[in-house]
Amino acid sequence: MASQGTKRSYEQMETDGERQNATEIRASVGKMIDGIGRFYIQMCTELKLSDYEGRLIQNSLTIERMVLSAFDERRNKYLEEHPSAGKDPKKTGGPIYKRVDRKWMRELVLYDKEEIRRIWRQANNGDDATAGLTHMMIWHSNLNDTTYQRTRALVRTGMDPRMCSLMQGSTLPRRSGAAGAAVKGVGTMVMELIRMIKRGINDRNFWRGENGRKTRSAYERMCNILKGKFQTAAQRAMMDQVRESRNPGNAEIEDLIFLARSALILRGSVAHKSCLPACVYGPAVASGYDFEKEGYSLVGIDPFKLLQNSQVYSLIRPNENPAHKSQLVWMACNSAAFEDLRVLSFIRGTKVSPRGKLSTRGVQIASNENMDAMESSTLELRSRYWAIRTRSGGNTNQQRASAGQISVQPAFSVQRNLPFDKPTIMAAFTGNTEGRTSDMRAEIIRMMEGAKPEEMSFQGRGVFELSDERAANPIVPSFDMSNEGSYFFGDNAEEYDN
């Protein structure tokens, strides 16, 4: 993207840094990872977990959730003011799984939030270390993106479920800051804005008074975040219109849905970061690795190297396929839920299948599930090659597409044709070009129609051997075009429920 120079890199967003050079960025990201790792080690000690239990991804998720809940100030305040039966607002906890007599047992633990905050700050040299908290939120978000298709949420806001490739980060909490905003897809931002506008339509006082002023500035800020994701002048001009509207209503909703559809071809720039579970960072720190000293990046080879040398386990339900569970977590670790499966298959070195073909449910185990038949197995999170994460949407291309997802959002900077089903997408653009945004709409449609099938995206960008740390010898991959490109292809993934 041309304006790259004016933006802070995501590592800076990730670490609240002012302008830093590459070495400083690597050190501050490393410091953040160190903090998460030290916190995780301490929690495993508190909970008396064995090494194996500490490497269980379900335990990692519970521990991450506990610290996120302990620092969720708004919710904590709300819980104190609106006490609900049987919930102690000062405590947080969740299921911890232990191996007892050759069987997995679930144990519900409860801790004072104050105590968890103390352990977290102690692991982070006394700081609140917001960057580390956001990092864990993005890992949870990436896992949700890989596990669930947001059909219901899309339909509720009037969008087409086939636009799911635009929904990265749709389950990120509001408090995820600049680093969170960077990884949100165009569809996620559109959905947040539509929800806001709908509230304004239904509630006369939404934009009024002292609160209304705050609401208005939040609305304009979200519009600017979305505008910054678009790469064409016409899309940005249309966002200006939406932002400046005196009284946002149905016309703005129409414009936003139009823009979301246009992003299936004229893709937005959305950041991709490899955020790993805390149970990967903990053992690495415990083994003596100093992330701050060595430096770390979320968008280069580092996460690949770390996963190459990590042992992570997962509980497996009786009829689940461990290899499929591994694929789910591998995609989440690489922030690749909406990437082209052919690119992923090449990088991973084994075939990556669409969601609907995987015999696996989510990673988390519900409290009512029976533990008797639970097994555990090693997650295979290694890769054959590594590639640089991208934040450009890439230019655009036609490809055989599917009944489910009709476009992709690249996660890796790797040369390819970008699949999208042009006739299906263009069919949504018939007729409606009147109104105050008509010239911009016409211009956007013209650009979409001009998108050429034979153009290559990320020209000359390749993948790298894991021994090639400096990215000196790019390998331009070859793809098996007979395979499906979309992950949520004609899909039956479970729906995400809060």
Rank of each mutant, 00 (worst) to 15 (best):
K214Y: 06
K452I: 13
D255Y: 13
H140C: 09
G435M: 06
G54I: 04
T62H: 07
A271Q: 03
D290A: 07
M426H: 01
A218F: 13
R106F: 05
M191H: 10
E81A: 02
N144G: 13
G37L: 09
S262Q: 14
L68I: 15
T147F: 09
D72C: 12
T15F: 11
A123F: 03
D497N: 13
V29H: 00
A263E: 01
N247T: 12
W207S: 03
I316T: 13
L133C: 02
Q149D: 02
G132R: 03
I347E: 02
M331R: 02
F420I: 14
Q308A: 08
G362C: 03
G268F: 06
E64N: 11
P248F: 01
K98Q: 14
V242K: 02
K229I: 05
I347A: 14
L166H: 10
N211V: 11
A70P: 01
D72I: 06
F458G: 01
K87H: 06
F458K: 00
Q168I: 09
K227A: 10
T390A: 01
S60K: 03
L381Q: 15
R106N: 08
L381A: 08
V363K: 03
R55V: 10
I301T: 01
G394R: 10
I365D: 04
L47N: 05
V408G: 01
F420M: 12
I197K: 01
E46M: 08
I225M: 11
F429T: 00
Q42A: 10
I138L: 14
N395W: 00
P173M: 03
F479S: 14
E465K: 01
P419N: 03
I116T: 13
A472M: 02
A153G: 09
E292N: 03
V270A: 13
R117C: 14
T147Q: 12
S478C: 01
R441C: 04
I225R: 05
S217N: 11
P318V: 12
K422D: 05
W386H: 14
P89H: 04
L266Q: 10
I444W: 13
A271V: 06
L264N: 06
L344C: 06
M43A: 13
I116K: 05
W207V: 12
K351P: 13
Q168F: 08
A472L: 01
Y385I: 05
G200A: 05
G300H: 07
L298G: 10
I475M: 14
D255Q: 08
G228P: 11
D240I: 11
G295S: 04
R8H: 00
V242D: 11
